[in-house]
Design a protein around this nucleic acid. Structure first.
Lengths: 384, 384
DNA sequence: CTGTTAGCGCATTCAC
DNA sequence: GTGAATGCGCTAACAG
């Protein structure tokens, strides 16, 4: 593949009363070079150019060398739009991830995915989904086992179980099928790109925000989900580390910070334990929750008539949105799941069309801080 | 113009072990309808179709009616990529705004603009700039007077002076030249789109954030720039209103909030007055600045050895970035200037190419909250 | 191995 | 008023 991209030789021009300290801006005045031009330069036909550009073989070494020569010199960029047309190929992108529920995390990722597919509707792209139960490794395995034989041109993976994912990636690698990750990335694989966020930083920011908004002398409690049986996810561990590092590295040892587990599948017990905790620790003024379940805490506190405890949690889910509007949650940290989905598909498409890979494989999403006032604007921007 | 867009009749399909609560996702399986198809249906030639689609006239009423009939029924969307080719037209987009300085607000807007131009480099688009001095109405006037005679196909306007801008828009309107606004929008004009943020909400959020991070009993001081001579900008007024409304509408009357002016062109006096203010008001724990000059306050306080005062300001300028890294500024509120520039150009291009206007003219940007921890991720995302 | 050519969807002459 | 023909940049099928 030989798609040279030289952004360096844009001419720099000033006009009229223009003044600026911003150095360069492209004016794209140069004539766009076509394969026809290259053919003329090389003294061969367009067919030959096409063959060497796409490594289709059946080209003499002499021609190939000559053509690669000038290809290296010039700034040839194929007109991707006209080139997509002729061969009439439909690309099939397969998405496999935990079941997407509207208003929850994976639902947001899916929203971004569909938006991207829609935006590229001109191109012939099919998108199919294969969901699995993120709490059931067997469900994941059976989903993953059926990926390759569906003959996708590219796969978007929302991973949960590392070993299963690695196995899938290995099969995809053998078949030369490109794949991208959303939400998290798995070591020992070779994705075209992955869109995720720095979990340690998430935890650190959780610490910073909770510290910021919890009145000076108030105690802080960290709540982490209790994983049924198996070990905590690595995400959760990283977050925890970041959270405590914030206090440790910023001279906040004076702040009283405690740590607790809560059970997602068992809300009754959580309610009982939290209520008891709050009553026996009246000095607590800030609650930090490492996942999206902050609304559970908020609802419990509201039912108990407690309003002096600040809550910080993750993800703009329907319930969290409700709570931040009510004022029962103070801040929500978001990792732009829509954008993750959108960008994942976009990078897959770019790879399929132009074999164009990003210079960086891992894309860390920004960590957004959403409070009551900027919520509506933030939400409006998600659909754009 | 007759570019129907019906996203409604996408077929909805489920595959394999797919399960979801997210209702629709487009699969774009349908054959793409071409003008050839329409010609066949209408029993005319493609030329005729083209004429009615583009209102070029020279079509019998009978044909026109028949064609519009089926046009209304079907979901015809022109293949924008191939359609842009043939006429080989270069579009010239003219950008006029206050002088852009790297690392400051308008520099960020320009960054977004150039990024968009670069992204659409396939299309033949020239971009030229005409800067003016935002503090000098004559400079603005002379820049604006030279816009129309440069023969732009579209104009991006970063307005400062309302009346000058209105005059410019009027000329553009006469010439049928489309224009879009960045940063703020001017009443009484008809832009294709405008990208701005809700200034009242900015002020309100400034209030909320300052309140959140200023310890319970600390006093808060609002600082607004003093405009030399002329009245305060409407942006500034809106922000001020939002700021005080936050405290008023959220039962925060107990909080002591004072208001002050500072002079941008006269830093010495500002330093003197601020130092005096801080010393004579030892109860102050939070400073809210309605523009990007928070770093000035931060630097003054740092020089005075004062570290117990939180500062909240606007815009990710070089100086503010430095201060937030140092810890002398606690939070920065951003209105995504890069995205404003990017989207402004994008909407201009879309209009030029497809006459496609957004359903909403005014696009309110999200208000981002940047603190020390999420700063690096936020900055990294700006170039994507 | 290589050149030629027929499309792709659209806009634009240019005859009729 | 209308249709046929040409070109845009590229791929792919087909002759040599």
């Amino acid at each position: 593949m030989y798609f040279c991209r030289k952004h360096t030789n844009n001419d720099i021009t000033r006009h009229g009363n223009s003044r600026t300290d911003v150095d360069i801006y492209p004016r794209s005045m140069e004539k766009h070079i076509t394969i026809k031009d290259i053919a003329r330069m090389a003294g061969v036909s367009v067919g030959t150019i096409d063959r060497v550009i796409h490594n289709r073989g059946r080209v003499s070494e002499a021609s190939r060398a000559a053509i690669e020569q000038i290809l290296a010199k010039i700034d040839y960029r194929p007109d991707v739009h006209t080139s997509a047309k002729p061969h009439r190929k439909r690309y099939k992108i397969l998405v496999t991830m935990p079941t997407a529920v509207t208003g929850e995390y994976w639902g947001a990722i899916q929203t971004g995915i569909t938006r991207c597919i829609r935006e590229y509707a001109d191109l012939q792209i099919d998108c199919e989904y294969s969901y699995y139960n993120q709490f059931d490794i067997y469900s994941c395995r059976s989903a993953f086992e059926n990926i390759v034989n569906q003959g996708p041109d590219a796969v978007v993976i929302g991973p949960t179980f590392a070993s299963e994912t690695r196995k899938l990636c290995e099969s995809l690698g053998k078949e030369q099928i490109p794949y991208v990750f959303v939400d998290s990335t798995i070591e020992g694989t070779s994705p075209v790109a992955s869109f995720t966020s720095d979990q340690y930083a998430c935890g650190y920011l959780l610490g910073e925000m909770t510290d910021m908004i919890t009145p000076g002398d108030g105690e802080i409690a960290l709540f982490r989900p209790e994983r049924a049986g198996n070990e905590a996810s690595s995400n959760s561990i990283e977050k925890r580390k970041g959270f405590f590092d914030y206090f440790r590295l910023n001279g906040k040892e004076g702040r009283h910070v405690s740590e607790h587990l809560f059970s997602v599948p068992n809300p009754d017990e959580t309610e009982r334990r939290l209520t008891e905790f709050i009553h026996s620790n009246p000095g607590v003024r800030g609650l930090a929750i490492t996942n999206s379940r902050g609304y559970i805490m908020a609802d419990i506190l509201r039912k108990s008539g407690i309003s002096h405890v600040k809550i910080v949690t993750f993800d703009l889910t329907t319930n969290n949105i409700r709570c931040i509007r009510e004022g029962s949650i103070s801040a929500i940290l978001c990792q732009r799941p829509e954008q993750q989905g959108y960008k994942a598909v976009k990078s897959a498409i770019k790879w399929l069309l132009y074999r164009q890979e990003d210079e960086n494989i891992v894309h860390l999403m920004p960590l957004d801080i959403v409070v009551k006032t900027n919520l509506p604007f933030y939400m409006a921007s998600l659909n754009e």
